[in-house]
Design a protein around this nucleic acid. Structure first.
Lengths: 204, 204
DNA sequence: AATTTTGTTAACCAAATGGTTAAACCGTAC
DNA sequence: GTACGGTTTAACCATTTGGTTAACAAAATT
């Protein structure tokens, strides 16, 4: 058996599929384009993944598994909330630079088919608020941060970090900046967003 | 001429198209489905709008024209920044309840085709930061708010208000809440978000 | 009333698309 | 070397899809 080549083909398909699905979405993606990008015959896609739907699901799970650890960094780490906010905010931009299409892809496809995330909720490592909730309650009681629900704080952290990338075309148009200036804005946010959040919740 | 029916048909097509395009996106939308929803023959779509692309552009402009005034409320109104933040945050939820698919539609389609917004930038009423920039600079100098660039503040306001709706499936999964609890979270944000922002920027 | 213009439909068309199949290929074991 | 297994391809297929056409209906124009 040419085992080496086997796995290679399957991997090449997944890479090409990630590329195409993330930029075009499920509906906009074409099996032929994926095959071309992978440098193989279209029939191979079906040989390894059966159908477009199953190939898409393989891609989605793979991509989602990149995002989950990022979120767990803020939910399940042991550092203080202030530290978490600083670290997450700082790291997230580098992460996005490596995977620029990821957040929009996840959001777009989950809105197209919201039931899809249910399949993933069971899997180990799926982000979960339980521990974070306790921590927020503790720090609120201790008085180191102002009263806020863990849910709202988590939403705010995600919003301030993720939204600017998802809405890049809008922001560029409204702010009337070019790609370079936009990148500078994002670079500035590495520290500004954390300050913005901490300013808001820290007790003085 | 059956004028009444004319305009009615054209209007019915646009309504049906808004419905289908907003929920399915350009790639996922089907001309036949739009025709069915409008209760007319598929050929009429082409009679009135020539092609799928042109019908889509008509829809996009129409939808975008709903969003623009919302943003101008925060950019070009004469009230103080604090008032603007409170008003915008409070009003935006009601707006979204009326147009639940709007933010995701705009973001999704602009990411699919970022050049598309250029066509719209010229049109009158397109949101513009100029006035808001002056106001922020003035209030910073006056000392009523902490130093922050107008761009970053604007991004933060948009992010905190829009993101929770765009990422609804994600938030529901992570927070492990049902639709009812999610709606309650959003309802709470009507005031919480404004407080969060003002807490962060207000000088004490 | 006759004619022209506009609105509407059913039937049709060509291209694209996801998917299938049968044969060829090729490394390995016998 | 040849038979066997998984791998790969070219050709093919059925369906979907955006778009067109020709004929018809209803107003508007004369």
């Amino acid at each position: 058996m040419k085992k080496g080549k086997d796995e290679n083909t399957e991997e090449q398909i997944l890479e090409a599929a990630k590329n195409v699905f993330q930029t075009k979405g499920m509906d906009g993606a074409r099996m032929q384009e994926i095959a071309d990008k992978a440098g193989i015959n279209k029939a191979m896609l079906h040989y390894y993944y059966r159908s477009k739907q199953l190939l898409f699901e393989a891609v989605f799970k793979n991509v989602f598994s990149l995002l989950a650890p990022q979120l767990n960094a803020i939910l399940n780490d042991d550092s203080s909330i202030e530290e978490k906010v600083k670290n997450f905010t700082f790291n997230y931009i580098s992460f996005i630079n490596k995977h620029p299409y990821l957040p929009n892809f996840i959001i777009q496809e989950l809105n197209r088919n919201p039931e899809f995330i249910l399949q993933m909720k069971d899997s180990k490592g799926f982000p979960n608020l339980a521990k974070f909730k306790e921590q927020v309650a503790r720090e609120v009681e201790k008085g180191s941060i102002k009263p806020i629900s863990a849910e709202q704080l988590f939403i705010n952290i995600l919003a301030l970090n993720i939204f600017p990338f998802v809405a890049k075309p809008l922001i560029m148009a409204f702010s009337n900046v070019d790609s370079k200036a936009y990148n500078q804005l994002m670079e500035d946010r590495k520290t500004e967003v954390a300050d913005f959040i901490i300013n808001s919740i820290k007790n003085t």
